[in-house]
């Protein structure tokens, strides 16, 4: 039995409200009508590169390298995606093909 709709609704609203607040906060702290401090402008320039790096790590955070399959499906799929992407530069192919390849690895090869 799942939780009642009313309780689920409150949970969804909490998640939505906090998500929006976090997204909104920087704009409240540095309103557009004032000059943004140069330090913040600098962070805005370099952060995108650092954050994407962080997000890659974030996506792979639950990989267990000490027990079977030792992170091999993730490693093989990652290498394949980077290689195919450098070779073909086709984003759809890299993402779609990479995911299907990974699903094949975890469902069939490293089952």
């Amino acid at each position: 039995m799942r939780i009642p709709d009313s309780q689920a609704l409150i949970l969804v609203l909490i998640m939505a409200a906090i998500t929006f607040l976090v997204r909104m906060l920087p704009f409240l702290l540095f309103p557009g009508n004032k000059e943004t401090p140069p330090y913040i402008v600098y962070l805005g320039k370099v952060l995108p590169f650092a954050i994407i790096g962080m997000l890659v790590v974030y996506c792979l955070k639950n990989v267990q390298i000490t027990q079977f399959p030792f992170g091999l499906p993730e490693l093989i799929a990652t290498v394949a995606i980077v290689a195919v992407h450098i070779w073909k530069r086709n984003t759809l192919l890299s993402i779609g093909g990479g995911t299907i390849f990974y699903m094949f690895l975890v469902q069939v090869v490293f089952h």
Partner: peptide, 20 residues
Amino acid sequence: NTNGIDFVMTALFIVIFTNQ
């Protein structure tokens, strides 16, 4: 069998990272 489908998010960021 959806096992592994959430890797799409990882793939997306890997591609963006590679592009950058």
